[in-house]
Design a protein around this nucleic acid. Structure first.
Length: 319
DNA sequence: ATATCAATAT
DNA sequence: AATATTGATA
């Protein structure tokens, strides 16, 4: 009986490694007798050593997408009574413990759906722009974005949709000529309908994106392959204060996102950030959390999905 | 054996 | 609607 929301898909081990795990910590606010009660329980479930080895952090501190998502139940133990409606990530395993007798919490779990925040999308677009549409394939994009928990599949999926969006744009723009990138400039207004694409409208579409058969397709940037930038945010970019125009429908709560360049040009080819972790099987104690500055945002749309919670990954990039 | 893409599923 | 997963194919 695991055919619930998305808890029981066909588990096809033949596919790539889909090890993921995270615990379900959601109903805690419901019962949660007392944190202390859970503590021992979690320990029983995951072995303290293992937990420690994974670098447990409070959900509050969840910054990057955890490669080997360590949000174990134990975190629930330490969770402060606050942040009930957090939407950082969540697990909706449905029922952990009723499905199978020998439920191994570890692996075999799926990771929460990635939420493409405007920030994340921005990174995506930047990467694609710098790669050139031609070379912009999932793997490469993913690498350039270097957002730690991002998977190739994540990007691939997003890319597919993005291409769709571009296509639509081309069509709207009227192929020939005029048009400026409707999306580029403040967009929104020109964008077909508001509901067309909430996310995509949030970041400018580089001009060349729209006309693949013309102009320079890509450039050659010395783009650094994500140097281990740890501290040092690149901040302060263009002083384009022009940003701002309007916020997207439901994305208001995000932090102030300033449009990069209102002129529709790219001038800020910086991307490098966190190095991708090889996230291997558990067993080692690999992770280190590269904290940096990042903002936490939350989407509620996830809730509308009907039970499935999401993981909001985001780039530490600031724009 | 991998990665991409298009289609499809949730 | 937004992502994920899959299947075919390069």
């Amino acid at each position: 009986m695991f055919l619930g929301e998305e808890g029981g898909r066909k588990q096809d081990p033949a596919r790539t490694t889909r090890f993921c795990f995270w615990a379900n910590l959601e109903l805690w606010e419901e019962e949660l007798p007392s944190p202390e009660e859970l503590m021992p329980l979690s320990q029983t479930l995951i072995t303290p050593d293992l937990a420690l080895a994974f670098d447990i952090r409070n959900p509050n501190h969840h910054h990057q997408l955890p490669p080997p998502p360590p949000p174990l139940p134990s975190s629930a133990a330490v969770l402060p009574p606050s942040m009930p409606t957090s939407s950082e990530f969540a697990a909706d395993s449905g029922d952990l413990g009723s499905g199978g007798a020998g439920d191994e919490p570890a692996r075999t779990l799926k990771r929460p759906r990635l939420v493409w925040t405007p920030q994340l999308h921005k990174r995506f677009v930047d990467a694609v722009a710098h790669l050139g549409i031609k070379n912009a394939v999932p793997k490469t994009i993913m690498q350039l974005m270097s957002v730690d928990g991002l998977t190739r599949e994540n990007v691939a999926s997003h890319l597919q949709k993005y291409r769709l969006y571009l296509k639509r744009m081309q069509g709207l723009s009227g192929g020939g000529g005029g048009a400026n990138g409707g999306a580029g400039s403040a967009g929104l207004s020109a964008t077909a309908d508001p509901a067309t694409d909430h996310l995509f409208a949030s970041s400018p579409v580089p001009p060349h994106f729209l006309h693949p058969g013309r102009g320079n397709s890509e450039h050659f940037l010395p783009f650094v392959p994500v140097p281990a930038l740890q501290h040092h945010q690149q901040q302060q970019m263009v002083a384009a204060a022009v940003a701002h125009p309007h916020l997207q429908t439901q994305y208001h709560r995000q932090l102030g996102h300033f449009g990069s360049s209102a002129n529709g040009q790219f001038e800020h080819p910086f991307l490098g950030r966190q190095t991708q972790q090889p996230l291997h099987r558990m067993g080692g104690a690999p992770l280190h959390n590269q904290v940096a500055n990042s903002h936490v945002e939350d989407l509620e749309s996830a809730n509308a999905n009907g039970g499935r919670k999401v993981l909001t990954l985001f780039p530490s990039g600031d724009d």
